[in-house]
Amino acid sequence: MDSSSVIETSKLTKYYGKQVGVMDLDLAVHEGEVFGYLGPNGAGKSTTIKLLLNFINPTGGSMTVFGKDPQKQSTSILGDIGYIPGEIHMYDTLSGKDHLKFQASLQSGVDWKYVKKLATRLQVDLNKPIRSLSHGNKQKIAIIAAFMHEPKLLILDEPTTGLDPLIQREFYDLVSEVNQAGSTFFISSHVLPEIERMCHRVGILKEGRLMVTEEIETLKKRAVRSLEIQFTKEVKASDLQGIKGIRELQVEENIAHCKVEGSLDPLIKKISKYEVLNLITQEADLEQVFLDYYKKDKNVA
C-alpha cells in the first residue's frame, strides 16, 4: 500500500438494496493534496464520504484512511478528520458558540482563539442562536467546526453551499493556507469552477463509478473549447472539415462555430489560408470538460 496515500479504496462497493451507491471504486488521495470529487447529485459522492467516515458499511471491496480500516479503527481515524456534511443539521436551540464548544469537547486540541479567528474571517456572529441563522451562516459554523481542531484530513461535502461570493473566496484562501500547512483535502462538489479553483487533482464520478482521475491541468489540456471564427468571405463547411480535434462544426455564410478538443494549432494552421476577421474563444472551464466527458460517454453507449 502506498504510504503517502491518506485515503485509499480498492473495488469499494456499496449497494442500497438493489440500488448502486458506489461501484468498484479505486481511489487514492495523496498526502498534502486537494482532491476534488466531482459528479452530479446522486452520483455517489456522499456515499463515498459516509463509507470513509464509517457511517455506513461497504457491500464489498476495501478502504483505508491513514492506512487504517475505518470499520475497525474509526475512533482513531476520526480524531484527525474534519468533516462538513452535505446537509447541515445542528442543535438549533444552541448558539453558534455553545454548539462549537460542544463539538470542540468531542474532539481534542481545539484552540478557542483559532475558532474566534475563523469566525471573524468568515463573518459569522457566534452569539446568535443557530435557528435564527441563514443557511449560509449555518454553513459557516459547520466550516469552523470542521477546521477548528486543525485535522490532518478534511472531508468536505459541498462546502460552499449557501455562501456568498466574498465568503466563498475567503473559504478558498482558507483551504489553500491550511493545505500549505500540510493538511489533505477531499472535497466533493458539483460546482465546477470551485473545484478548478481549489483542487490539484479531480475524480469524476458518474452513477457510482469513478470515470476518470486526472490532474486539473491535464484535464484542462484535454478540454474542449467553443470557438467562433468570423471570416471576411463566405466559407464552406467542407473547407474546415477533417481538422484534428474539431467537432460540431456549423458554418453560416462567413461565420463558423465549432468545438475543438486539445490544441488549437491544427485549426489555426488551416484557417490561416483564409482572411480571418475575428476569433472568439472562451477559457475552457471544467464545466465544459465535465459536460463533454458525459456526452462522450453517452455517445459511446
Binding site: 457511517f55 476520526l78 478528520i81 456534511p85 443539521h89 442543535y91 468531542l106 474532539q107
Partner: peptide, 10 residues
C-alpha cells in the same frame, strides 16, 4: 440529521 455531529468524532 444531527447524529453526525456526535459520530464524526473519536
Amino acid at each position: 440529521g444531527t447524529l453526525d455531529i456526535l459520530l464524526a468524532t473519536p
